[in-house]
Nucleic acid binder design. Sequence first.
DNA 1: GTCTATAGATGGATAGAC
DNA 2: GTCTATCCATCTATAGAC
Lengths: 216, 216
Amino acid sequence: MSLNEENAPETEAATKQLVFNAAERLFALNGFQNVSVRDITAEAGVNLASVNYHFGSKDSLLFEIFRRRTAELSRERARMLHEAADRHGGKPPVREIITALIAPPLRWLDPANDRRISLQFLIRARSEGGAEIREVLSTDVSHLRRFSDALLAACPQLAPEEVYWRLHFVLGMIHQNRFMELDRLHVLSDGLTREDDVAGLRQRMVDFAAAGFEAA
Amino acid sequence: MSLNEENAPETEAATKQLVFNAAERLFALNGFQNVSVRDITAEAGVNLASVNYHFGSKDSLLFEIFRRRTAELSRERARMLHEAADRHGGKPPVREIITALIAPPLRWLDPANDRRISLQFLIRARSEGGAEIREVLSTDVSHLRRFSDALLAACPQLAPEEVYWRLHFVLGMIHQNRFMELDRLHVLSDGLTREDDVAGLRQRMVDFAAAGFEAA
DNA sequence: GTCTATAGATGGATAGAC
DNA sequence: GTCTATCCATCTATAGAC
């Protein structure tokens, strides 16, 4: 039950999944450079050589986790955008486009969701990842372009660069959802901000972003 | 001229400043863990032992850079907030509070500003820093509280937790201004977003954030 | 496939001459 | 204060037994 669903066509060794999950968790909590192969194999309860046998290297392991999680998140977002387009004759309104961008990661953030740690991993890897990660991010531009194109169509009154900047701002709002920042906010608000209320947070984010997009 | 102004009461060794500047630059560009003491001293053109002699350890060096830059940024923000309060009888409007939060880091982001690299360092250290950094961030809550208090006073129609969340969103927008994210946006927009137009960016950020704060 | 043992490289820190 | 040389810990990766 704690195993993530498997996307690979073949059944992989249980050891590989144990390593994958332990690495994702430790990377998300402590950062890539602060976690050694020894930490990972110890946490997974497998042998030290497992990482290199199953993934080739520590870097390849990070890369594979990032690639898989990014693909999963992009797929969820693309599906929501597609459904919104279907509902509106191919031209969804701003609010629904923003929701398609925000809702999937917020769903992952839910404490009741196994993927809570995956989202932390993704946000962190985006900041700390090396050259290989940036390569994926470049590829991911084609994923983002679906959203920028939809927003451009939904905001004909705005200059195109304005639309790009506002999309940039929304992405910043999403990336702010790290444990550290949420904890800090919890301290600042003296406990008023409940981090387990992801439905409320989603609503707040969409409201804020939609209002920002409708600014003069 | 490439030296940063000195805040310490005493004149420090030129070597110490060289190390400080080289370390800030390399940390900002490559991340803390990816920069060795050897890299720093090589870039600074000083001896390998300089880091330990002047700063005690690599960790202490990071910490000192972070502490100084954080203090500088907080001071600029607090001054702007104070001036805004003076202009409005102690109760500045939302837009001016947000501007006090956004304008200083955006000023640092200007390519014509020596501090461009300092802002990159700060954003990165906030993500990648260890336990000591988080300690400073906790202290920094008292700095943020000036802004949350001002916003609470300026938004009596909003529930307090709403104000805290919206402040959280604005901080996310600010932290999104890393080289990597700006480059990515530049690719996505096919060159439309000009990263050297910081005045325009500041206006866009304030407009977006102010509109978000005025959402129902 | 799994494990132990170890190679090979790197980095932080320091001793001690100048 | 500055420099060189070096110690010592740690890490990734791999060879080779089982």
